[in-house]
Design a binder for these strands. Structure first.
Lengths: 343, 343
DNA sequence: TTGAAAGCGCTAACAA
DNA sequence: TTGTTAGCGCTTTCAA
């Protein structure tokens, strides 16, 4: 025994009742006298009785908790999404268990299996950039574990999905740069196979096409670690600097890639770096403070977390197997600068 | 039943053995024939058997998991500390359950009680700024729950503590500003009663005193929500702007307070804001990118997380009640700018 | 209205 | 070497 806890048995013994009577009194069963109920409740209150959720989980095969897997929590998008998740979960009586994959497939699998074995009632997941093969998830899903994808989703599993309008975000961010007069626009993005990567790239391409700017594959750079490793961006920026025609602008598809890019420029060619125009996905509060400034595409992270959680709880609490699934697409927002006199 | 799981019973039935034999085979007990062991292990592997940790927790009254309570995960200091925590915990066979209090006492209590009732084997906690009364923690600690404080600690509970050298950090950050030639130096900090607030304030005062600069209480501003609420800083900056003698510099004790301050200046008086010298505690990677730049005091967050976890696991696994506790103080680092030609 | 007993998955003391 | 049984905390038939 690790440390003292009051159990139903203690109450039963103290009151000269059976455990089942105490149990019924505690959960307000109707087949019990008001008097007994009162006595039990009062005593339980007095000794600060708390039911043991582990025993309940074992019995009910559920835990009133939901598992969350994201690649990293030190990311404004995910931490905001998690706040959205918690806001709904707590109000619906669920606890939230947060885990991070660090963009590592193996860690993702470990996390998911741990969550599943701990009887989470459902799973919210944004895939790691290494996760090509998600058969491990599929088999859990097939066994009946409710799963809702958000942000980085997969076609391989048929369930609810909540994503930002990545195409729109990519399109607007790119078109903004075009409207600023730029024609040579690079694109730094995540690992190639991720859903968000594809969608944002499509938006980028569509904007170029609309304005009759040729697509140049040399301008597209993939980051397998989503900007978490500075060296990755240093190498990419070096590549860029070697190009015959250096771009005048970059559309960056991810928060950390943006900041790592700025840091790389600052280190490798601050002169050029201070002139280049950048637009990018980020949910940072402080992007406004950066030099150079970046024009921000913001995702409704909090709402995405909320919505994903609502859908998940719906799945969990559904009396019948759910067979109709939807993919919710929430609009991104291009944050245009206030044209103030003092910048 | 939520979803299909293989149990030891299934294996026993399939193999015509008793559950205890299977159990022993699985956990490699010596009192078992190699043959039986082989058969069981092979079959378990084949059907992908996973022991049910909930049943284990119920039986052993422990869970091989540790609970973490921080005020917010969207904070570089804490997310780095959590990475340190996870690095040690995983290697020692523990899982980590992360919760956030949002600087809210009630939420902190809920989180801790949930963690405790879920049989976490120990607790790592940095107190919320609202948490004056920690008797709820004390009673858990008295019942035998191992607790290690980090960052924001309390004297009321006698246990291991891991903190940064906040005095030193405050002293160096302030003295740096003094050496830059500033004499009127404000100090923005957290809620007054937090340990980190006291310690950093002492460092600030000591630096002033060393350089014979009088301490002006009007220059010290407390943020009860640690900069998480922009309005709080807007109000403080407004106050500052009204002062007869505006400070030329500010030492800021917290990450979010720094960024919220910069945003407030940008909004309220960008002219003045761009001239003021700022030094502050932050573990952000991107502070270098800010305009104006801030001189950074960095805490060894990752190492603090690691150390706290090592101490906690030591407590958890100790065969005897531990009565000797220590407070580890890790040095902060003042990040001086490379004097480059191009800034 | 209350109690006795079984069972959730697993381990371990005791028996065989 | 293997099986039987009790028990972790709780709920829930079934009996009284």
């Amino acid at each position: 025994m690790r440390y003292e806890t009051v159990t139903i048995k203690d109450i039963a013994k103290a009151l000269g009742l059976s455990t089942s009577t105490v149990s019924r009194a505690l959960r307000g069963g109707y087949e019990i006298s008001d008097e007994t109920k009162r006595i039990v409740l009062e005593y339980a209150e007095k000794i600060n009785y708390r039911p043991n959720p582990i025993a309940l989980s074992l019995k009910e095969r559920r835990s009133y908790s939901i598992g969350v897997v994201v690649c990293e929590i030190a990311n404004n998008f995910f931490s905001q999404a998690i706040n959205g998740i918690e806001s709904i979960a707590y109000n619906s009586g669920y606890h939230v268990i947060i885990t991070q994959s660090n963009e590592n497939h193996e860690r993702e699998v470990l996390n998911v299996e741990h969550l599943a074995s701990r009887s989470v009632d459902g799973l919210l997941i944004s895939l790691s950039s290494e996760s090509n093969d998600i058969s491990y998830l599929k088999s859990l899903h097939d066994k009946g574990l409710p799963i809702v994808f958000f942000d980085r989703v997969s076609e391989e599993i048929n369930t609810h999905k909540v994503i930002a309008n990545n195409f729109q975000g990519g399109f607007e961010a790119t078109e903004y740069l075009i409207k600023c007069g730029h024609k040579h626009i690079a694109h730094f993005t995540n690992a190639a196979h991720l859903s968000i990567t594809r969608e944002r790239l499509e938006g980028y391409k569509a904007a170029l096409q609309k304005h009759s700017i040729p697509f140049n594959p040399d301008y597209v750079k993939y980051c397998n670690y989503s900007g978490q490793i500075q060296e990755e961006l240093d190498a990419i920026v070096k590549d860029l600097l070697k190009l015959e025609k250096r771009p005048e602008a970059i559309f960056i598809a991810q928060d950390k890639i943006s900041t790592s890019t700025l840091l790389a420029f600052k280190k490798l060619d601050p002169e050029y770096g201070s002139k280049i125009a950048i637009s990018g996905f980020t949910n940072s509060r402080v992007a406004d403070l950066f030099c150079p400034e970046i024009t921000v595409v913001r995702q409704p992270a909090f709402e995405m977390g909320q919505l994903a959680t609502q859908l998940l709880i719906q799945l969990i609490e559904s009396k019948y197997p759910v067979t109709e699934f939807e993919t919710k697409i929430l609009n991104t927002q291009l944050m245009l600068k206030q044209l103030s006199t003092n910048t």
